[in-house]
Design a protein around this nucleic acid. Structure first.
Length: 475
RNA sequence: GGCGGCAUAGCCAAGUGGUAAGGCAGCGGUCUGCAAAACCGUUAUUCACCGGUUCAAAUCCGGUUGCCGCCUCCA
């Protein structure tokens, strides 16, 4: 089996062959930490989390780098507005990032470099470009000359000539080309600054990723990821910087995830419809968010709606309901790890084809249905087959970053939510269930059904099982 | 203006040459006092529209319409 990846650079799916057999180096652009993370950040981070998890599952040794951009115009602006130190701002939002992403079961990257801790590498990088004549100084600023790099535009599929036609009037008329971009920005009074051969200042937006990728992964590495919006200018400029500096290919596979829309609208400042992860977490289980995000192919846009989230929750309930029943029927999972079964194989085939999690989720549900069918039936070999399918499903769950809880814990959590919103306590519910059981025993079904209806109004659903009645939270 | 993407059942969504996965919702059935959960069956002779290539197209090519993204900070 080989993995195929859609490479933005070639605009086609390519067979994935890492530079060093068995090893994969990955760099993903992390957030600029000037505000809370929104669901768009969640998608990008979750998508690459799953890609890295899958590569490891497939036996690759992965070196995964995800940066924090912790010095930037927006951070400074916000700090000034709040009368805070920029470093306080970035630190605050880095901690928030971890709170959100830990909740979403996102694994830490192997290195999570912060720009402010890599100033020597950045300055060395800028120095290389200045020395080679690809960058030039204007007062205390250093600019990259896009015309000095003849591949400029190859990632985003643009030609410098075409862009020049529609280019806006450059604000800085001193730039040789309107598309030249800052490698080093001279410090204005009150701004954070580092000494450099070009005077005190700070890095431009794009240089940090080139420098930190270089530091951790070398001149060439395997996979570079980020949101689609980063293709131009951010990633295009990274290519120009890194390939300009080393004369070697930069990233071998460019992977870009699509956007998250909110009710079919792009999240934007003007619409004021940024949906923060911390707010969504209050309403939905973290795995519901992951399942929702992964139910679409990573390159397609995905529309965040209450309906879509409710469906994801229904799906997650379905999987945990199966796991709960399987545990009762076939015992708790564990013991000797089974050989991967047919469902895992099909899941892996889906993932091999450009990380098609949407197709993979479909396979997962097919497994649930098949195993439920076995539990309904009476085949002699049902138990081992159920266990085999469950093992496959749990393995898929590990790649997707879901099914981290035991079914009991999951449903306890679901119940806790409704107890809070409906202001009813578990003892009261249990008392009603007991009363209903007595009514049923006395054949007083009118009373029994009235109790059930009363609870249903509070989104509490009863299930009469052979060993007694349990309650769950509805959709 | 330049570059790129998308249009598949009521809704969401896979499927890039071989005859339409999966989820949600709906309907019929099994089970149940009745339900719920689960399972079985059913729900697109058809993949925006028009033309072309092919033995064969949702899948390739050309055109039309509609929606969207990037080109400016942005996951």
């Amino acid at each position: 089996m080989t993995i195929r990846i859609y490479n933005t650079m070639s605009r086609s799916k390519e067979t994935f062959e890492p530079m060093s057999p068995g090893k994969v180096s990955v760099y993903v652009c992390g957030p600029t930490v000037y505000d809370s993370c929104h669901v768009g950040h969640a998608r990008s981070v979750v998508v690459f989390d799953v890609i890295v998890r899958y590569l490891r599952e497939r036996g690759f040794e992965v070196m995964y780098i995800r940066n924090f951009t912790d010095v930037d115009d927006k951070i400074i602006e916000r700090a000034n507005r709040l009368g805070m130190d920029p470093m306080e701002i970035s630190e605050k939002y880095i901690q928030e990032f971890y709170e959100d992403m830990d909740a979403l079961h996102v694994l830490r990257a192997d290195h999570e470099p912060r720009v402010t801790r890599y100033m020597e590498d950045i300055k060395a990088f800028v120095g290389k470009l200045v020395d080679s004549g690809m960058a030039y100084r204007i007062d205390g600023d250093v600019y990259y000359s896009v015309e000095s790099f003849n591949g400029y535009g190859k990632l985003s599929g643009r030609k410098l000539e075409d862009m020049e036609a529609g280019a806006r009037v450059g604000i800085n008329a001193k730039k040789r080309n309107p598309f030249d971009f800052a490698l080093w920005k001279s410090a204005k009074p009150g701004e954070p600054a580092w000494d450099s051969p070009w005077g005190p200042g700070r890095p431009g937006w794009h240089i940090e990723c080139s420098a930190m990728a270089w530091r951790h992964l070398g001149e060439t590495f395997d996979i570079h990821g980020g949101g689609k919006d980063l293709i131009f200018p951010h990633h295009e400029n990274e290519v120009a910087q890194s390939e300009g500096a080393f004369g070697r290919p930069f990233a071998r596979y460019w992977v870009h995830n699509g956007f998250v829309n909110i009710d079919q609208e792009k999240m934007s400042k003007s619409l004021g419809n940024f949906l923060m992860i911390k707010d969504v977490r209050r309403r939905y289980h973290p795995e519901t968010i992951r399942l929702f995000l992964l139910s679409n192919h990573y390159r397609s846009p995905v529309d965040f709606t209450d309906k879509a989230m409710d469906e994801a929750r229904a799906g997650l309930d379905r999987i945990y309901t199966f796991l709960e029943r399987a545990e009762a029927t076939a015992g708790a999972p564990g013991g000797s790890p089974a050989e991967p079964g047919q469902y895992w194989q099909r899941f892996a085939e889906a993932m091999d084809d450009d990380f098609n999690t949407a197709l993979g989720v479909g396979v997962l549900f097919e497994g649930v249905r098949a195993a439920n069918g076995l539990m309904d039936g009476s085949a002699d070999d049902a138990l081992p087959r159920i266990r085999a399918i469950r093992d496959d499903i749990l393995r898929m769950g590990e790649v997707l970053g879901i099914l981290n809880e035991t079914p009991a814990a999951y449903f306890t959590g679901r119940r806790a939510g409704v107890l809070e919103t409906e202001s009813i306590d578990a003892a009261k519910i249990e008392a009603l269930i007991k009363e209903r059981a007595e009514a049923r025993k006395a054949k007083d079904f009118a009373r029994a059904d009235a109790i059930r209806d009363e609870l249903a109004e509070k989104n509490i659903v009863l299930e009469d099982r052979p060993d007694g009645t349990i309650w769950k939270v509805g959709g």
